[in-house]
Amino acid sequence: MSHGWVGTSKTGARKGSRGMARAVAVAMTCGCIAGMSGCTFLIPSRAEVAPKEVLVRVTTPAVSTEGVLAVALDDANAPLGMNDAKGDLTGYLTDVAYALGQRLGVSVEFVTDETPSDMASSSDADLYIGAASDSDADKVTVVGSVLHDAPALFAKGAASAPIDSSALAGTTVGVQSSSAAQDILTACGIGAEQKTFSNANELFEALDAGEVDYVACDSAIGGYLSRAYPDISFAGALDEPDSFGIALRSTNDDLQEKITEVLDELQADGTLDAVYRSWFGGLPVDLSDMLLDGITTSAEREQQEEQRRAQEEAQDEDQGADDTDSNGSATLEDPVVDSEAEAL
């Protein structure tokens, strides 16, 4: 998932850390003074506030460092992971990681120079967040789902997603030049004029200004940017979504169990949804049923191509068999025998 500029600056690979969120209870007493209006606010001192009890649910060797969950992610993949103008690590996946750490009772440290496959070796991280579901390998297991991502369509005005692909005929669709969304849009054979832009920000500015009827881009980018435009909405997915979860070492059964357990809790109590909404607004969490009506997916096109190749191979084999039969028949004909040789 690589995207055009979305308003953040990357300052290079780095490691960041942040303690888990701390809730401070503030008691406030309002006493009305006779003959006076208003209230007196009494704020307790730090010593008077009972510390919040934290249940530590994971320890070494499930995590490399006691009390710390080391999380690897891609910090060049806005808005999932990115550096803000101050160089601080932020993004949807960082907030999910903080939620995981808080629920596990540990702090979170980030590692930004590793990949999901690094989990199989001597990685500095305990897990990788944002790994594709097909990243499973002999020594790496991907659990849960924290994000669906797909090439998607956005429209100005309320759109009853998913719209029918026939509605795109004769329209102008803004796309980022040389992007995956442009490739998908072209492969779908949709009869719409394409207008290219250099980055995703320009796409949504053009849509808001009425320069294009729709924009096609990555769903996460679109959901993130559309929050700034109250009249822009998600119109549907242009392909089946990819699912992204958490990659861990296959041998780390304890951490796998705890991460799966905590993810289920975060989904059940609405925490994960709240984090998602803060980053992606009204973009549907599950894009599986959001494919544009009447569109052909990449998998379907690949299947059609495989069938075409199989038919061609079968035809070639049939032609080869016909040629063999033809040559064989020629050899079975009565030979022309030289009369002198026959006489001998």
Results as ranks from 00 to 15, higher is better:
residue 9 S to H: 15
residue 10 K to W: 15
residue 14 R to A: 11
residue 15 K to S: 13
residue 17 S to T: 13
residue 19 G to D: 13
residue 23 A to D: 06
residue 28 M to C: 14
residue 31 G to P: 08
residue 34 A to P: 10
residue 41 F to D: 05
residue 44 P to N: 04
residue 47 A to H: 15
residue 48 E to R: 12
residue 48 E to L: 12
residue 50 A to H: 13
residue 58 V to Q: 10
residue 62 A to C: 07
residue 62 A to T: 12
residue 64 S to M: 09
residue 68 V to K: 04
residue 74 D to R: 15
residue 76 A to D: 13
residue 76 A to Y: 14
residue 79 P to F: 05
residue 80 L to N: 14
residue 85 A to C: 11
residue 87 G to E: 14
residue 96 V to K: 13
residue 96 V to I: 15
residue 96 V to F: 14
residue 97 A to P: 11
residue 104 L to E: 01
residue 106 V to T: 11
residue 109 E to K: 11
residue 110 F to M: 01
residue 113 D to M: 13
residue 118 D to W: 06
residue 122 S to W: 08
residue 127 L to N: 04
residue 127 L to P: 03
residue 129 I to M: 07
residue 131 A to M: 07
residue 138 D to C: 06
residue 139 K to I: 05
residue 142 V to I: 10
residue 143 V to H: 12
residue 149 D to I: 00
residue 152 A to Y: 01
residue 158 A to W: 09
residue 158 A to N: 07
residue 160 S to T: 13
residue 161 A to I: 10
residue 161 A to P: 08
residue 166 S to W: 10
residue 167 A to S: 10
residue 168 L to G: 11
residue 168 L to E: 11
residue 169 A to L: 07
residue 180 A to F: 04
residue 180 A to G: 08
residue 181 A to K: 00
residue 182 Q to I: 03
residue 182 Q to K: 02
residue 186 T to Q: 11
residue 186 T to E: 08
residue 188 C to Y: 00
residue 196 T to A: 05
residue 203 L to N: 07
residue 203 L to H: 03
residue 204 F to P: 03
residue 207 L to I: 02
residue 209 A to K: 13
residue 210 G to M: 10
residue 212 V to K: 06
residue 212 V to I: 07
residue 221 I to G: 03
residue 221 I to V: 15
residue 224 Y to S: 05
residue 226 S to K: 08
residue 228 A to I: 14
residue 231 D to N: 03
residue 232 I to Y: 10
residue 236 G to Y: 06
residue 236 G to D: 05
residue 237 A to S: 06
residue 244 F to S: 10
residue 247 A to E: 12
residue 248 L to P: 00
residue 254 D to Y: 09
residue 261 E to W: 04
residue 261 E to D: 05
residue 264 D to M: 07
residue 267 Q to F: 12
residue 273 D to S: 09
residue 274 A to N: 09
residue 282 G to F: 13
residue 283 L to F: 10
residue 284 P to G: 04
residue 285 V to S: 14
residue 288 S to Q: 05
residue 291 L to Y: 02
residue 294 G to N: 07
residue 294 G to D: 02
residue 296 T to A: 00
residue 297 T to I: 10
residue 304 Q to D: 08
residue 307 Q to V: 05
residue 309 R to F: 06
residue 311 Q to T: 12
residue 317 E to Q: 05
residue 317 E to C: 02
residue 319 Q to G: 00
residue 326 S to E: 15
residue 328 G to H: 11
residue 334 D to N: 06
residue 338 D to C: 01
residue 342 E to A: 11
